[in-house]
Amino acid sequence: METGGWISMILSVGFVTTMFITCLYKVLTYKESTEHMHGMNIESDDLEEDDKI
């Protein structure tokens, strides 16, 4: 493996790994991240009917 190959690999893999971990850390540590989203219902009417049955 050439020096250029090492540089190319380390920069590429390092960049995407750092970006992924940083973004995930921000999402998981944000204060509202565990709260539910703001939609109204989760299921459509026919699914609710199924549950009643």
Partner: peptide, 22 residues
């Protein structure tokens, strides 16, 4: 979105922030 007869309403959503990202 699920609709009722002749009407419209928002009825579905994600349960969590991480859920939509995943």
């Amino acid at each position: 979105m699920t609709t009722t007869e002749g009407n419209v309403r928002k009825s579905e959503s994600w349960n969590s922030r991480l859920g939509v990202i995943l």
